[in-house]
Structure formats: C-alpha cells, structure tokens
Design a protein around this nucleic acid. Structure first.
Length: 361
DNA sequence: TCCCCTTCCACTTTTGAATCGG
DNA sequence: ACCGATTCAAAAGTGGAAGGGG
C-alpha cells in the first residue's frame, strides 16, 4: 500500500478566466486520519502579473539570449539549461500534450542561491496561461485564433523532494523533468492540465515549509515566484513547426531514433524532414553538427544532465523518487470552484463535472 | 476539405533484477 | 557470504504515420 499525502486544491473566488490565475489553495494532507492533518495551504493571488513581461507571439523574437537569472527577495534562481531554452524560444517552443501525460522537453532545471540553509522549503511549479487567446499555426508563425479556453486551475507539480532545507536545494540543480502535461481534463494522475493551441509559461514558487502549516499566499510575503520568459511554450497535440520538431529530435536522447545522422535514420522520414525544413528562410540545420547557437558540448552537457549524477541524486527516478512521507504528485487532484475542501476520492468526479460546467466554450 | 486529436508503431534510454567474479 | 560490476529484459519516453471526428 502506497503511502500518500493528499493534496486538495481549491479555488477561492471561483474565477476561471484564462490568463489570470485567481486565488487558490493547495492543501497538503498527510495520509490517514484527517483529525491529525496539518495541511499546507497555498494561495495564489494576482499571479497573472508575473506573466506580463512575456513577449507577444509572432514572427520574430529577436535572437538575443534571455538572461538565465531571476532574483527576487535576495534569492536568485538560475535557469540551468538556459541556452537550450533560448534555442527553442527563438522558434516558439512547443510542448506535446497527451492523454496519459507527456514530459516537457526541454524541462525546467534551476540552480538556487540565497536560501536560508537551515530553513525548509517547498518547491512548487505551475504553468499559467500567458494570455487570453487560442492560437493557430499558419505554417510560418503562431497567430491568435479566437478566445482561450478557461484555464484548468489548481494543477501544480510539487517537487518530490519537498520539503527540504535550503542547503539541500542549493547544493545541486533542481530538476522538474518528471512533470507531465496532459490535455485530459479528467486526468486523475495529477498531471498538469493544459489546452492545446494555447500559450503557457511555467512558474517556480519557493514556499517556506515552516509557514506552510497555515494558509500561504504564493505571491505573499515569504513566498517567492520566479518566471523565465524563455520557457514560454505553445501546447500542442502534434508538432506544428518542423523546426521545433528538429530541435527536439536533435537534443532529446529519446528521439535519437529519428535523427538523420546516418545510423538511425529512416529513409522515409529523412526525406520529409529535409524537404520541409526550408519552409522558412532561417531553417534549422538538419544535422546536429551544423547547429550554430548551441555548441556540441553545450548540447551534450544538457543531454547528459538528464542522467547527470547530480541531477540523478536529486531527482532519483523510480522508487527513490517516491519519498514515503511525500507521495505528492499523484494526489494532486484538481481544483474546486467552492470554498470548502472535500476529501480527494469524492473530489475526483466532482472536479471533472465542475470543470465541464465552468467551461462555456 | 481542413484542422486537430488519438492511437499505434518503431526506436531509444532508463531501470532494476539476475548473474558473475573477486 | 558479501560486494561491486556486468548483463539483459521490461518499462518508459520519443516523434511519425495513419486514421477518425467535428
């Protein structure tokens, strides 16, 4: 029997306007008897302001490299794989959504400094809508195409090592490669629910664990939120931009089978990739050796970091990942458009119903 | 017809148990 | 018997192709 920590997400004011994340609570409940619960409540207020600096969609984003550092309240978070994110960002990053959940690539990996070494923190990641638009790919760039679907609130990814001390978080990179995205609004695996053809921005929240036995505002004192515009992406169910596809194939080890480096290529696919890559003038080099923005060493470093001992020790997959005391991710159930928090089992069905009810289309 | 989504496929890496040797 | 290294099969993660539905 797995030991799980229940998480209930509630929406305080019930708003579901895309692009403006309303206040909500994250309630972490230890398994078992609710009388002994010491819930952790997190609220999020005015979080949309954080995304205000995100660039507009369109044909050009400039080719400058966006900064890897973000400092708030003396705490500095550095986007570890910044060069790769920028590489994708300049071509409008796309992330695949699947029913069973798909990992992000690139994923978010941070270095953190400035924490209190002895204090415990909870690291929370969520993904917020950038604006109120639905988008379409016109063959060359993304353009608005109607109004956005209401954002599914309350789905967050709590780092499995949470809570841990500031010293722990600072002595190695913090990775979120286990985070999965889905377009299944009935998802019960705790994956982050997004809408296809919409635009999103990941956010990292640092929550002091000592204060987390009470209600905490994610944007309130003591809680710091970090965003990196270069991590913005369009959610899709199938890749739209062939350049993004090529970058994924070039850099993602799991996609090695699609590389046209001679050994693993499939003739059928080779032809298509090469032919379509000159859709735009600035085509992506079809082979990794021709890349210019990311050096070979950079790329390999980023790829290796997936299995990097530092990251591995921190993000130990499999059994080690699932701390008995904090089986968090799979218990993130959803958000409730009500003031009271229900127990998880009965919540699951209600969540889906409420979501559908609150979706005017 | 077009656009978007789902499913299946071939391929890869990752993981963990089994085995081997010192 | 113990421990570390190696091997191997299963599991999980990829993008592409094909087909379906609105």
């Amino acid at each position: 029997m797995e030991e799980k920590q229940q998480i209930i997400l509630t929406n305080q004011d019930g708003a579901t306007v895309a692009g403006a994340a309303p206040t909500f609570f994250v309630i972490l409940k230890p398994p078992g008897n609710s009388k002994t619960d010491q819930g952790i409540l997190v609220t999020n207020r005015d979080a949309c302001a954080l995304a205000s600096s995100v660039s507009s969609p369109g044909k050009s984003k400039g080719k400058s490299c966006l900064p890897a550092d973000c400092t708030v309240g003396g705490i500095t978070v550095t986007l570890d794989n910044n060069s790769m994110w920028n590489e994708f960002y300049h071509r409008s990053t796309e992330m695949i959504l699947t029913k069973q959940g798909r990992r992000m690539f690139p994923y978010c990996r941070y270095w953190i400094t400035g924490l209190d070494s002895n204090m415990k923190y909870i690291l929370v990641m969520d993904i917020s809508p950038v604006d109120n638009h639905r988008y379409k790919w016109n063959g060359r760039w993304w353009e608005p195409s109607g109004k956005a679907e209401p954002h599914v609130l309350g789905r967050v990814f709590i780092h499995p090592e949470s809570p841990s001390t500031g010293h722990y978080w600072m002595h190695q990179p913090v990775s979120f490669y286990k985070l999965k995205l889905t377009n299944n609004t009935l998802d019960q695996e705790g994956h982050i629910i997004l809408h296809s053809m919409h635009r999103y921005l990941p956010r990292l929240h640092l929550v002091p664990a000592e204060k987390a036995t009470e209600v905490i505002q994610l944007s309130g004192p003591g809680v710091h939120t970090f965003t990196f515009p270069q991590t913005e992406f369009f959610a899709v169910t199938a890749y739209q931009n062939i350049q993004i596809t090529q970058l994924k194939i070039d850099y993602n080890p799991f996609a090695k089978g699609f590389r046209d480096d001679g050994l693993n290529s499939k003739p059928q696919r080779d032809g298509k990739q090469k032919n379509s890559s000159d859709q735009e003038g600035n085509s992506v080099p079809s082979s990794p050796g021709q890349r210019t923005r990311l050096t070979e060493s950079e790329a390999s470093e980023i790829q290796l970091s997936d299995s990097d001992p530092l990251s591995r020790g921190h993000e130990t997959p499999g059994k080690d990942l699932e701390k008995p005391s904090l089986m968090i991710k799979r218990d993130i159930v959803g958000f409730m458009n009500i003031d009271s928090a229900l127990e998880v089992p009965q919540l699951k069905q209600e969540v889906s119903e409420r979501l559908e009810d609150s979706s005017p289309g």
